[in-house]
Simulated assay, not measured.
Amino acid sequence: MEKMNHAFEKVKILVGMEVEEEEPAQEESSFAFIDDFNRNCTFSTKQRLYGFAICLASGLTFTLLSLLVFFNPIKFGITFTFGNLMSLGSTAFLIGPQRQFSMMLDPVRIYATAIYFASMIIALFCALYVHNKILTLFAIILEFGALIWYVL
């Protein structure tokens, strides 16, 4: 029975639910905002799955819609980047924002995460302010490459 309870606690941690156990006194850390956010945003498993499904479906829809405007790199850059952000945000519903953030800052993924977010910012900057199709297309190619690297 104890093994089953231990396995159930591991599943709760994986899904991002709080596990009932005594916590040591915590000191103020750099994750204080994210800790408060996690405590205030406790969703049930069903709510987490709905949020994940809605965000993922929205992200995939925007990403697929971006293919319709592929020959207009400015519109393509905006819709593709927004779709990627929605898809990335969907996983925060499953594992929680704090765990998502810590996984993104994992030493294995830190470079891919930095390049991915930098290329998103560059793509949006080139699309919205510079209005240069070649630079926007280059930033989108960089963003897609960083996304593949991040996923791998």
Rank of each mutant, 00 (worst) to 15 (best):
L56H: 09
E21T: 01
F144C: 08
M1V: 07
R48Q: 07
V130K: 08
M86R: 11
Q47K: 04
L64P: 03
G16H: 03
S119L: 05
S119F: 07
S66K: 00
Y116H: 15
I122Q: 03
G16D: 06
R48F: 07
F62H: 08
I134F: 14
I74P: 07
W149D: 10
A139E: 04
Q26T: 03
G89R: 03
K12P: 01
F8W: 03
A7L: 11
F62K: 04
M1E: 11
A139W: 00
R109Q: 09
I13S: 14
Q100G: 06
S102G: 06
S44H: 00
S102R: 12
Q100H: 10
F31M: 13
C55Y: 05
S102P: 00
L94K: 02
I122K: 07
L105S: 14
M120H: 10
L124P: 01
N72G: 00
C55F: 10
A92M: 15
F31G: 07
W149P: 04
V151P: 01
E143R: 03
T63N: 03
F33Y: 13
L68N: 09
F101C: 04
E27N: 02
V130D: 03
M1Y: 06
T45Y: 01
F52C: 05
F138D: 09
Y111L: 14
E22Y: 04
M104Q: 13
I54S: 05
F82Q: 02
E20F: 05
V108R: 12
F76I: 00
T79Y: 11
A114W: 12
I78C: 01
A112S: 15
G89Y: 07
V11Q: 13
L135N: 11
F76S: 05
G145V: 02
L147A: 08
F8E: 11
F33M: 12
T113R: 10
L67Q: 15
F144K: 08
I121A: 15
I115D: 10
G16F: 02
A118H: 09
H131S: 03
G59T: 04
Q98D: 14
W149C: 11
I74Y: 03
E20P: 08
V151H: 05
G145F: 13
F8P: 02
K12N: 01
E143L: 13
L14E: 04
M120R: 02
I13W: 12
L85T: 06
A146V: 05
L49V: 04
L68S: 09
M120P: 01
F82S: 08
E28I: 09
I140W: 00
I115H: 11
I74T: 08
I95S: 14
F71D: 15
V130G: 01
E143Q: 14
A112E: 15
S119T: 06
T136Q: 10
K133E: 15
T63H: 02
C126G: 03
A57W: 01
G83C: 09
